[in-house]
Design a protein around this nucleic acid. Structure first.
Length: 420
RNA sequence: GUGGGUGUAGCUCAGCUGGUUAGAGCGCCGGAUUGUGGAUCCGGAGGUCGCGGGUUCGAAACCCGUCACUCACCCCA
């Protein structure tokens, strides 16, 4: 038996109502906030991701699905959506359009990690990117959108954490202080963090190992090294969140795994997801567009994991299941089967949802199917009905039956369906 | 990449210290009702016991290997 790839899941029909509900909620809110949908490729030139996400990040170092095109070009299945969106923004000269550009997207992302609860190799994200506004209100807008979507879905146990990473120059000033401190604490840190002192010292602050947390508690704080401008910006963001009633927690340890973030970073976590507690996250990335060859363009965005939202979505949040097929056509016997097929098509042509089970040879079997499928009506067409020229339309709930002329069938069925 | 757990029917799972034809519930198909569904009763189909090797008179069970799934570390959505 050929099986699916590890960490890649099928979404079966039973799960679709929940997914549709999530997607429609996200799309509705995003549209309401003035974002426009964009669809970009799921694979790109490898260097796009290496340059934007950061060469020394885990994603680029060991999690990308990279392969060679036939001409030898290195291509990669996208591990996240921002890089491609920025590429498209630059490539189509979007910056020359007058208004701020705000996009949202849905789609699969790919990371070669060991699967576990809430973590897959192909997973799906909804994300937004807001280009062109270096104003705290743009950050607030994006965070508000994220919070409103998650709240509207009634996802339980949510916390919004937020931090200020400052400008690149702020981090450059801070990094030597932190490294100096971490070197003193060397022995108290886990092996991973000891390595990170050189590669990515800020990440040490975000380590979950208790010993590392304790060791870094007295460490110099990035907040103390921030420039006045960065502080003022962050104050503006927090004031905006306060003004529109978005609850947040400051977390000075919050460091995101992608290199392009600056100033505002945020993450929404939950207590209901097992070990993977992040539902969505994002931040400001003012330098990225320029890094990828575009004009200097401030930008801010976020992404949420659809699987993680789906896992948390309470059953009660789901609207009632979409209506089942309304008319079951029970055609049986030599002539009845043939007439049934015609009747089925005729109903469908006028927009009536109609189904049948072609295996069923007896009326009893047909009615059982109709019942199981939750059909409200069954059209009975056996040989007798064909002879008379009238089918029997049975209301499955009331058991009331009436004859309907088989020629011009839909004309007779439609009023009965409307009247029920 | 590193650990732990689990693999028996379509699904959820029994199966004792190894013992002869491997079970249940649900689901599926059919019958009771030769053209009228849901309930009930009766019957039926469906299994290389994850795979390979070993121990044994005998293995679903014990041993070794392997694969898959899963949870966790790491990291992240």
């Amino acid at each position: 038996m050929i099986k699916g790839i590890k960490g890649v899941k099928d979404l079966l029909p039973e799960e679709m109502p929940r997914w549709r509900f999530i997607e429609e909620t996200a799309r509705r809110w995003a549209t309401g906030y003035g974002f426009q949908e964009i669809r970009i490729p799921i694979f790109e030139i490898t260097t796009l991701f290496a340059r934007s996400i950061g060469a020394s990040t885990d994603i680029v170092e060991k999690e990308m699905y990279t392969f060679q095109d036939r001409d030898g070009t290195s291509l990669t299945l996208r591990p996240e959506g921002t890089a491609g969106t920025v590429r498209a923004y630059i490539e189509h000269n979007r910056s020359s359009d007058p208004v701020p550009q705000k996009y949202f997207y849905f789609g699969p992302m790919f990371r070669h990690e060991r699967p576990q609860a809430g973590r897959l190799r192909q997973f799906h994200q909804f994300g937004v990117e807001s280009f062109g506004m270096a104003d705290p209100r743009a950050d607030v807008e994006v965070i508000a959108l994220l919070w409103r979507i998650l709240s509207d879905l009634a996802l339980p146990g949510l916390t919004l954490e937020i931090n200020n990473l400052g400008y690149t120059s702020d981090r450059d000033a801070y990094r030597p202080q932190l490294i100096a401190y971490l070197r003193q604490q060397d022995v108290a840190l886990c092996g991973n963090c000891r390595r990170r002192i050189e590669t990515n010292p800020l990440r040490v602050l975000d380590c979950k190992v208790p010993e590392c947390r304790a060791a870094t508690e007295p460490a110099p704080r990035l907040a103390d090294s921030l420039s006045e401008k960065a502080r003022a910006y962050f104050t503006g963001v927090l004031a905006g969140l306060d003004a529109i009633g978005i609850p947040y927690h400051l977390n000075h340890r919050l460091v995101r795994g992608l290199d392009y973030y600056c100033l505002t970073t945020f993450e929404v976590t939950t207590t209901n997801l097992g070990a993977q507690n992040a539902v969505g996250a994002g931040g400001r990335y003012d330098g990225l567009v320029e890094t990828l060859g575009g004009p200097p363009t401030p930008a801010v965005g976020f992404a949420v994991g659809l699987e993680r939202m789906a896992m948390m979505l309470p059953e009660t949040a789901l609207a009632s299941a979409p209506g089942a097929a309304t008319v079951y056509v029970a055609g049986f016997g030599d002539r009845g089967s043939a007439a049934g097929l015609s009747a089925l098509e005729e109903l469908r042509l006028v927009g009536i949802r109609a189904v049948s089970d072609f295996r069923s040879m007896t009326l009893k079997a047909h009615l059982r199917q109709a019942d199981r499928l939750g059909c409200r009506f069954t059209l009975i067409v056996g040989d007798d009905e064909v002879t008379k020229g009238f089918g029997v339309l049975r209301n499955m709930e009331t058991k009331v039956q009436c004859d309907v002329a088989l020629p011009s069938l839909s004309l007779h069925v439609l009023p009965i369906l409307r009247g029920s």
